[in-house]
Design a protein around this nucleic acid. Structure first.
Length: 645
RNA sequence: GCCGAUGUAGCUCAGUUGGUCAGAGCAGCUGAUUUGUAAUCAGCUGGUCGGGGGUUCGAAUCCCUCCAUCGGCUCCA
């Protein structure tokens, strides 16, 4: 007998070689029907794989991430099987489960797959699912596996197997389809009740641009038809929050082919929104000891040669700007740091002057590949809420904490709670790839880890993800469709102080090299606004929204009073509009609701007589009559509680 | 840059196998209406059907090419 520990820490005894399915059955028939895989000592297994010794287990159903992963991984096999049935001779790369569904990279040879082919593949997949094909695990020696795929002519699998360690390799067989696979899988295909192929894309073999591009087919499956329907509806809902759509509807920003792709035009409403964010951050930064600086949009080539960026990015960047003077070349600035280094160099610093914090909303230009451009999240011209902190090595941690404070303060004020934090460290096995002394790296990495811990952030630590010039801390936020974007970033840099020979005089009267910290709490204004739009669906917090209120006179007779109210509110710094059209009140309200204006001020006979206003809140409805000063108080309280000063 | 898809009025979309197919709703304009918490009525103006080339008696519709957009891949100082 072996001891099986369940998630609630209860322990049950089972005969040696018991399977996950048998354990599920011993608990309940219902569970046995719904269980998809089993986690055995933190490893996900097939339900029919015998457990030979004491173990801690968890049975995974659709409700568990691991359960869904098992189902989707098996679905990828079914899709491959269906594709092989329909297009014999197809070669297969990899087919993993992903956060929402799965994909398979395939090589169809001459044939071109398009979304028009999805229906017949889906149909075949459902047939396979209904056939209740069992997934059978086989262990085969590496040599035999290689022979199998060489004979089949599938160079991708050969490539994969060649990289595996010697010994036996696991295969899974379902119906006529056999695939190299670590597993785990469903017991059989029957839990898959609903199938949807979502999209098709090119993907380089092994993510390498120089290798062949395969066809990647994305799909998702569900144990119930209804779930698929709900999922597709959810995707539709998410599309409604897309910043590109809302940006157009609320007239926040636009693109023009005449101006150029990836070059956003901020419309009056969007510019107001952005300025409100900038004003807020400027205020916060002033309090935190930052000094504003301003630098030009172009820089001499020499500047970027010195920074090292010319070498690394010059060829792929925008073309140089030539001037009449001989030998002079300028570039649109791709980042602000070299300029800020030059600002730092304009005077001498004592160790007592540090840290020096230079801040600038600096607009930069980068040549992003055309296929990469995406609304406001990926553009060719954007404004960083940039600052560079020049400090002593012993100040790194303190500075990190203070920057994290700013980032959290902003996220808090915008009700941005759903973010993740990533610490990127250097690859410990490849230290020579990085610039800067071992000692400084260790100090900085330790400082970042400690600073995040002290701030109570749950950060994921990723080794080998650091830039060559220093470790970093990133704040990531997801957009409406679940894609992750990097917003705030804090990066240590040992490279630029070196290249620009920055120095300060220490207490020992010797010259020392400062550490530089790049940081941008928003990241870029463009990307931040994009993600903000998707988070609030265009219903911006009152304090940054372009228009906070709109006065709606009931009829032309009350225009005069309405204008009086308008002036009064604007004088009290409530950004207010007026709707003077000869429309019915219902229509004016509808239009104001559509524009997502937080407060509607309705004035008619009664209000004029009483010197009051009727207030309607967006999305909520009528709040009743107010004296103007009471309304202003209400608005100011709402703003203060949001900003949480 | 690569793979696939898309591109019809400011916006959202119809347009059957190439032949009164250039349309609708919203928006806009003009007029009437003077309105009380999510759409008042009537009339009117908008489009070289993404650009260019080709096939055809005839192209929004078929082919080629370029551009842009969308979903991915790669990249992201």
């Amino acid at each position: 007998m072996i001891k099986i520990t369940l998630p609630d820490d209860s322990v049950k005894e089972f005969p040696k070689g018991v399977t996950g399915l048998e354990i599920a059955k011993s608990i309940s028939e219902g569970l046995a029907r719904n269980v998809l895989s089993i986690t055995v000592n933190d490893e996900v297994w097939d339900l029919d794989r015998p457990i030979e010794q004491d173990a801690k287990i968890k049975l995974n159903t659709w409700e568990d991430k691991e359960g869904r992963a098992t189902m989707w991984h098996s679905s990828a096999h079914i899709m491959a099987s269906a594709i092989e049935d329909i297009y014999p001779g197809t070669k297969f790369g990899i087919g993993p489960d992903i956060e929402n569904g799965f994909y398979y990279d395939i090589d169809l040879g001459e044939h071109n797959l398009s979304s028009n082919d999805f229906e017949k593949i889906e149909k075949r997949m459902l047939e396979i699912a209904r056939e209740k094909q069992e997934f059978r695990r086989k262990e085969i020696p590496k040599k035999e596996a290689l022979e199998y795929y060489e004979k089949k002519g599938d160079e991708y699998k050969v490539d994969l197997i060649s990289d595996l360690e010697d010994g036996t390799i696991s295969f899974y067989e379902s119906g006529n389809f056999t695939d190299l696979c670590r597993g785990p899988h469903l017991v059989d295909t029957s839990p898959i009740k609903a199938v949807k192929l979502l999209s098709i894309a090119g993907a380089y073999w092994r993510g390498d641009e120089s290798r062949k591009q395969l066809t990647r087919v994305y799909g998702i499956t569900f144990p119930k038809q209804k779930m698929l329907k709900e999922y597709l509806e959810m995707l539709e809902e998410a599309k409604k929050r897309d910043h590109r759509k809302i940006g157009r509807e609320l007239e926040l920003f636009a693109f023009s082919q005449n101006v150029g792709q990836g070059l956003p035009l901020w419309l009056p409403k969007g510019a107001e929104l952005r300025e409100n964010l900038e004003k807020f951050l400027k205020k916060v930064q002033r309090r935190a000891g930052y000094q504003p600086v301003i630098s030009p949009h172009i820089g001499n080539k020499n500047l970027y040669v010195q920074s090292g960026h010319y070498d690394k990015y010059g060829k792929d960047s925008f073309q140089p700007i030539d001037t009449p003077a001989e030998g002079e070349q300028f570039f649109l600035k791709p980042m602000n740091c070299p300029h800020h280094c030059e600002i730092f160099k304009t005077r001498q610093y004592s160790y007592k002057d540090l840290p020096v914090r230079l801040a600038e909303f600096g607009t930069v230009y980068r040549y992003e590949q055309s296929g990469e451009l995406h609304g406001l999240t990926r553009v060719r011209g954007f404004t960083q809420d940039d600052a560079h902190i020049f400090c002593r090595p012993d100040q790194v941690k303190e500075e990190f904490i203070s920057v994290i404070d700013i980032v959290l303060h902003i996220f808090n004020a915008l009700d941005f709670m759903d973010y993740s934090v990533q610490i990127s460290l250097r690859d410990p096995d490849n230290k020579e790839k990085y610039i800067g002394s071992d000692e400084n790296w260790e100090k900085a990495e330790k400082a970042i880890i400690e600073a995040t811990a002290e701030k109570g952030l749950k950060a994921e630590v990723v080794k080998g993800e650091a830039a060559f010039y220093g470790p970093k801390l990133d704040f990531m936020v997801k957009d409406a469709l679940g894609r992750s974007w990097q917003l705030g970033t804090i990066q240590v840099d040992y490279n630029l102080p070196e290249r620009f020979e920055l120095e300060y005089i220490g207490s020992d009267n010797q010259k020392h090299r400062p550490v530089m910290i790049h940081r941008a709490p928003f990241g870029s204004m463009e990307r931040f606004v994009a993600v903000l739009i998707e988070h609030c669906g265009g219903n911006f917090p009152l304090w940054i929204t372009p228009d906070q209120a709109i006065v709606l006179p009931i009829s032309d007779k009350y225009q005069e009073y309405a204008k009086k109210v308008l002036t009064l509110l604007n004088n009290l710094e409530i950004r207010t509009l007026i709707d003077e059209r000869s429309e019915k009140t219902g229509k004016k309200i509808r239009d104001a609701e559509t524009k997502k204006i937080p407060y509607m001020i309705i004035v008619g006979e009664k209000e004029e007589a009483e010197e009051t206003i009727s207030v309607r809140k967006h999305g909520k409805g009528d709040l009743g009559g107010f004296r103007i000063e009471d309304f202003v108080k209400l608005v100011n309280e709402e703003i203060l509680s949001a900003i949480k000063v």
